[in-house]
């Protein structure tokens, strides 16, 4: 059997050939080791990231937590020592009230039900409840924490999120030249957005969602149209 290599379309059961790698290889989502070799377990395109990481880029919508990923969640229960946060996975994530910047037993962080939280997954295992933190290992919040009011949270596919987070994202570059907006992208397929007006927010959200089906060379045209729509109103 020949086996698929990087850039190929794979379906579950396909044998995957890991070419051009020396040393350790990391199997990401969509790949599994079975006895003699590596098989795909998802439909999509086989990709290779840095550090010899191989994974299958698929059209998945449901989030499965992974350690170290930054996610957006909505607080569903803010009482007690552990707050509950809905991050779109099968289990709700929990976050300790001490996992915020400057939080102490005396100084509880101000978190209410319905708040949008940007946190990093500290614990993510299939057998355990996921746990979030809103500080880094130095106790600084960085960009994590409760997001301010006036934002708009919407969901999209996990693949689109990865597309937005690529170092060179033509959409965000093109939009940023024309509009002022704040965008937070969680790897769980949620995007938080804040602009100056409701109209702008909706248009930018539409543009982000449309980006799923755009080729890189179509992006500039789409953004120009959006700006035209904004200015003509």
């Amino acid at each position: 059997m020949n086996g698929s290599s990087e850039g190929d379309v794979v379906v579950p059961g396909d044998v995957v050939r890991l070419t051009g790698v020396k040393g350790k290889v990391v199997l990401g989502p969509g790949l599994a080791r079975t006895g003699e070799g590596v098989h795909a377990t998802k439909c999509g395109v086989l990709r290779k990231g840095g550090n010899n990481i191989f994974y299958v880029d698929s059209r998945q919508k449901k989030y499965v937590p992974a350690k170290g990923e930054c996610v957006l969640g909505v607080v569903t229960n803010a009482r007690g020592d552990m707050f509950k946060v809905d991050i779109g996975s099968s289990d709700e994530a929990s976050v300790s009230y001490l996992a915020f910047e400057n939080a102490t037993k005396k100084n509880r962080p101000l978190v209410n039900v319905g708040d949008v939280l940007f946190g990093r997954l500290l614990v993510a295992s299939k057998d355990m409840e996921p746990e979030l933190v809103c500080v880094d290992s130095h106790g600084k919040k960085g960009r994590l924490g409760v997001l301010p009011d006036g934002g708009f949270l919407f969901t999209c596919s996990l693949n689109l999120v990865r597309k937005l987070l690529r170092p060179e994202c033509p959409l965000l570059e093109a939009l940023g030249k024309q509009l002022a907006f704040e965008l937070v992208v969680g790897l769980n397929g949620r995007v938080w957005l804040r602009t100056g007006s409701v109209r702008e927010t909706l248009l930018v959200a539409d543009a982000v969602l449309a980006y799923q089906h755009l080729q890189p060379h179509q992006v500039q045209h789409a953004v120009d149209q959006l700006i035209y729509q904004l200015s003509s109103s």
Binding site: V11, P12, G13, G30, T41, K42, S58, K62
Partner: peptide, 10 residues
């Protein structure tokens, strides 16, 4: 296949 649930085969 569309949902991305891991499968051994189709």
């Amino acid at each position: 296949m569309d949902s991305g649930v891991s499968m051994k085969f189709l």
